[in-house]
Amino acid sequence: MTRLTVNGKRLELDADPSMPLLWVLREELRLTGTRFGCGMSLCGACTIHLDGEAVRSCVTPLSAAEGRHVTTIEGLSPGVSSAVQRAWIAEEVPQCGYCQSGQIMCAAVLLREKPQPSDADIDDAMSGNLCRCGTYQRIRKAIHRAAKDIAGEKA
């Protein structure tokens, strides 16, 4: 039995503790917003938050989430998700969209840790998240825009 909190809900799961969290989320909990791209920690499509840190759910076993908080794209706090989504739409970021859950989950952590990130901060945080549609420079702009937006809301 693994005890964990997913998107604010406390759960007890009796799935195989070695099962990657990605599959627990997608298959057991039907949280399909977290995507599979490679299964080898190489693309970032499966990024989620584990106690607020961005991790790759495809290589994180369920057992690693014991007693911890998991957040997926579906459970991103409304304040952050709406600021990020507004910025992503304003900059017309998504193309096929497949990588974007992972991009947004990664960006959300960055924005919390560095509310006014520099381009270098963004590259540092985001360069592991692949986007074959090539939306990188728009993601960078959208992160700056979201940072301003969040700062404005707080002021």
């Binding site: 917003g33 977290t34 794209i73 579906e74 992503w88 739409i89 998504p94 969209g97």
Partner: peptide, 13 residues
Amino acid sequence: RRKEGPEKLSGHA
């Protein structure tokens, strides 16, 4: 703006 933008950003697509 892209018609299907919002659902591609919320995990719902």
